[in-house]
Write a protein that binds this DNA or RNA. Structure first.
Lengths: 207, 207
DNA sequence: CTCTCTACCTAGTCATCACTAGGTTAGTGA
DNA sequence: TCACTAACCTAGTGATGACTAGGTAGAGAG
């Protein structure tokens, strides 16, 4: 038995930096989603991409820089989705929320990502805290505006409280996300959201 | 300058093992709530108690043993609360859920605990995953039974789906917990829960 | 073909942290 | 008062993981 695991010395596949950086961010997002930020090692991300940890740190100088890039990417994607769903105004916008559950179900890794990171974002000092705070603020502002449009247009009862409805709907989404992971047998997120929105519309629309 | 930091050699305060173990579990729960399990070191818990890490490991042989003790304690306390709130049967049990928000608001450290640990519970292998799964199962079973009692007693409309209402209520609680930490200015959890339950009761009760 | 630039590697360093071996002293019971 | 148990301590060990210094080779420019 000669050399143990010869491993075909240095089969390097060199890639343009931008493409490699994208690949790293995608992989990191996937691993963060299952093991969290602290629970994911730089080496693990690098191995999944097919390079070494030192190789990865050539693209992102520190682990925190990688986190920042992942959060930026995530924010970008999330904002696009929010915009798409909340494009219609007023009550139609609210009706459109029924589709949100399907969006969530189609991207389970995305669900894990936010759960995994939310815990590490509790201490107010962290980058993560800022990220989550910003995300909530944006989402709530969009939703509240949509409710308010409906009220102003006379489609929604004037006694409906946009702040309350917004809080509850966002809470529903976050809570269902958790159940997706922990309830045995799985929770039909899309069904739950659709039914909730149906009941919501029935309750708030002007007859 | 002789000895640096003399630190009053060995001011040992020795305590009976049971009292010390309790103290350690309480402290660990508090630290887990802000930094998570991975983010909390054994030494940090020990220092907060006033002993060394080795001293702590005399009471709990490994960090995982400590986690298990904390989870057991948490489960005990949580189960007592669930039982107390869901003591009334049927529609009255549902009406009683309005008080849940106040219970949550009165124990913010308890909120953090579950958020902090839920993220590390995503991977199905961990002790934590089992803990959360069990917790959800118990809570859902209690709630579904209460809804079903109401339907059977003719207090709740027969077309109400207990599984759906249960999912949504639990999701609301979990989601509000998150908002408690991330929404600027804070979310009035108790108000949100009470209003939600009022609307729920109005929607499902037989006229 | 050669030159150069840089993506990537090898081989470390250093800090952190769970855990251990063995000593020390505070209480407790006789 | 005198052991004796055990709740602590000191001082490690080894594993892990972020990050670094300096070398190597792939690929486009000329």
């Amino acid at each position: 038995m000669p050399t143990p695991t010869p491993t075909r010395r240095t089969r390097r596949t060199r890639r343009p930096p931008e493409a490699r950086a994208d690949e790293i961010v995608q992989t990191a997002r996937r691993l963060f989603a299952t093991r969290g930020f602290r629970g994911t090692t730089v080496a693990a991300v690098a191995a999944d991409v097919g390079i070494t940890d030192a190789g990865l740190l050539h693209h992102f100088p520190t682990k925190n820089a990688l986190l920042k890039a992942v959060l930026d990417h995530h924010t970008q994607v999330g904002a696009d989705q929010i915009r798409a769903i909340l494009a219609p105004q007023g009550l139609d916008g609210i009706r459109g929320l029924a589709a949100w559950g399907e969006v969530m179900e189609s991207q389970p890794h995305l669900l894990g990502f936010e759960i995994a990171l939310s815990s590490e974002a509790i201490e107010p000092a962290s980058d993560l805290h800022e990220f989550f705070t910003a995300r909530y603020t944006v989402l709530r502002r969009w939703l509240m505006r949509t409710f308010q449009q409906g009220v102003d247009a006379g489609e929604i009862r004037p006694d409906v409280d946009p702040a309350h409805e917004t809080s509850c709907f966002v809470a529903l989404l976050d809570g269902l996300r958790l159940q997706w992971f922990f309830a045995d047998g799985g929770v039909p997120i899309a069904d739950r959201v659709r039914t909730y929105v149906d009941q919501l519309v029935a309750r708030i629309e002007v007859p």
